[in-house]
Design a protein around this nucleic acid. Structure first.
Lengths: 256, 256
DNA sequence: AAGTGGTCTAGACCACTAG
DNA sequence: TAGTGGTCTAGACCACTTT
């Protein structure tokens, strides 16, 4: 009876915690600063560690925190804008934008890749595809890992290449691709979780949230190549057009 | 000694669980089918419910499952491709693509919005902005909620509008905007978590993962409007260009 | 060796949906 | 009212980094 209308909130604890922490980050912490460890934070807020972790997870998802096992939790810098779609179509590797070829190989296409390549393209279902692995580095940080699929039929000049496995071979495939006339391209973005190999490349744990950017490259003959790029969702903001230079802060998005 | 090399995996249980479930989904379940409840699944796999939930969470993040409190866990249909960036620039509301105006209001811009609008645009920091709320429906499902910010100075004709709050007023603002000459636009995509109001609109819980699409609209006078659209990350695949019609399956992305 | 975040358990109760 | 997923707890141990 005597109690005021406090505690009226059916709001989950972790949600409220997240809000409190978020404000604390804005006011009392600088970028790169390390937070108290989880056990202490949990004790300080009077919740179980699992609950505290639920709040931290959300903040990490929003790019506000960075957690590293054995090290601690630090305040993340604002997300970096990473240019993804330029106004002009271009083959991978044509514009110098931080991509680093790693390796190239040859495999049979998985059904998923086949579907992306589409029917009627310059390839056959049982013919091999060349795969090129690249990583992208921005501001000294690995932000993306890419796997490029090029049907052998797309680049007839390729069998002649005898470059040893490694960056040289990857570059050779890209060079061959760039000799074709690019008719158009096509892009989609969706949320995913990092595969083990991509996670390693990106210095994240497997399952970390990533943005999957799928690009299809068209020639007159059909789909000549498909790229699946895995961007770190915690640190990246994908930009299309020329908005890469704008800083976006972490403040509340609106007061409607 | 007698044991074979089983149990050599330092792989987390939930990760392995996710793989097993993922394969089961491919083989033994149809889209829309409901899974056994969490307590039973956990028992069946011999793990704690929290561990089982960790696997389910990942699968939901990847768009393979849909969980609804009080109902159950069902197999999600493939993500819908949602066209976001067309080749042509256009004002919001110009092309008929499923957007539904809800309401319009007037507020003072938050610092974050101010930064997006930029300095030197056709507005002043202490002048109000019109906000327009819209939702986007595709395949009978709400996929996005948008908040459009239009500085009052961008649309001088607007004060004359006396439409009552509601869709009519929202449409009036959009109409006024469309009278301007659009010079260009600018887009970025990042991961976020749904605010309470957006979550409600999208029929999700607060904090659900979303794709934040920020668009800036330019006229000769500067940034005339800014839109922040919140897309359901679990059900949407954002498409740029004309790739919206391609089905992408949930199969393993590669066998490198 | 000490300290961090990551995984896991076995419970409990709550909020929501549907019969 | 019964059944579902969502939240929360208080522990324990593990994997990793740093000193």
């Amino acid at each position: 009876m005597g109690t005021t209308q406090l505690e009226t909130a059916p709001e989950p604890k972790y949600w409220h915690l997240k809000t409190v922490l978020s404000e604390a980050l804005d006011q009392d912490f600088a970028v790169g600063e390390v937070l108290p460890n989880e056990r202490e934070l949990a004790a300080r807020f009077g919740v179980a560690r699992a609950t505290l972790r639920q709040a931290l997870e959300q903040l990490e998802l929003e790019g506000r925190l960075q957690r590293r096992r054995g090290v601690g939790t630090t305040v993340a810098p604002p997300r970096v804008g990473v240019a993804v779609g330029s106004a002009q179509h271009s083959w991978p590797g044509e514009s110098v934008d931080g991509w680093e070829p790693l390796d190239a190989a040859e495999t049979l296409p998985t059904p998923a890749v086949l579907k992306l390549l589409g029917t009627g393209g310059a390839f056959a279902a049982d013919q091999p595809v060349h795969t090129v692995r690249r990583t992208r580095v921005t501001h000294g940080q690995a932000v993306a890992a890419e796997l490029l699929y090029v049907p052998a039929a797309s680049v007839p000049g390729l069998p002649a290449i005898e470059a040893p496995a490694g960056p040289a071979r990857a570059r050779a495939v890209l060079r061959e691709l760039q000799r074709l006339v690019l008719d158009g391209q096509d892009r989609s973005v969706e949320l995913g979780s990092a595969r083990a190999d991509d996670a390693k490349e990106l210095d994240r744990l497997p399952g970390a949230p990533v943005l999957l950017v799928t690009t299809r490259y068209f020639t007159a003959a059909g789909t000549a190549a498909v790229s699946v790029a895995t961007y770190r969702a915690d640190t990246c903001r994908l930009t299309f057009g020329d908005s890469g230079n704008v800083e976006i802060t972490h403040e509340p998005r609106v007061a409607s």
